[in-house]
Amino acid sequence: MVVKKSRIFAGIDVGSLVTKVVILKDGKIAGYSVISSRTNPKKAGEQALEKAITNANCKREDIKCIVATGYGRSSFSFADKAVTELTCHATGAYYLNPNIRTVIDIGGQDSKVIKLDQSGKMSDFAMNDKCAAGTGRFLEVMAQALEVGLDSMGEFSLKSNKPCSLSSICTVFAETEVISLISAGANKEDIVAGLHNSIARRVGSMAKGLGLQKEIAFTGGVAKNSGVRSALEEFLDINFTPISEDPQIIGALGASLVASKL
């Protein structure tokens, strides 16, 4: 009997807000999915996996190995291994561009800065402390307070000429400050720009503390926000190196690459 050697791997990244799956076939992304995590990481992971399998046009039984990452990484009995999102973001970014030496990732509940060596191995990292300041969750709360769509915040803030100054780094107090600014008649554009600056200061200081080395990639869901991106570039006086894929799937991509090496 001839057994057809399968070269398909999957990476599942169950974040606090969004679950991502990447299917890797012969070393290339064959398909991926992005869905809301809601309150059941296990169910979200399974749904996202099914969806990615459909998008990649393959079968579940063809998948040779699955690696799970993200805060829900330990929820899957069918995953072959759980690996942290630190290793996965480093692996994913380096795969897309081997000149990357620093990854700044802002996800739903964590922000992190990862340093890579020449061979793509993680050599140092720093993560936010346990509060939500400087994370996707912070932006989500603020978008609700301002009644602005989360996806349009980036564009919105780029229209601002004089960003508001927000002193609080705490999500709860920052929300109070935002409400005060609204009642004082400040432009929403300026408030959103101010919020983006506050994230850039928070995450940017952490990155400077660790030491930035070029080239620098920006990953995670918040990397899709052009306002945060340009605020960080300005604060750090750098330009991010564009990456060729959706920045939100880099963790899942890294997980699938780890799976391919198991």
Binding site: T84, Q109, K130
Partner: peptide, 28 residues
């Protein structure tokens, strides 16, 4: 690696990812 914490056990998952990440880094 520096890891922020307090006296509540509610940050166990967050500390876990930092420690696991650090262990992965040492292993690599």
């Amino acid at each position: 690696v520096g890891i922020n914490t307090g006296f509540s056990d509610s940050d166990r998952a967050q500390i876990k990812v930092r420690i696991e990440g650090f262990m992965e880094m040492l292993k690599a």
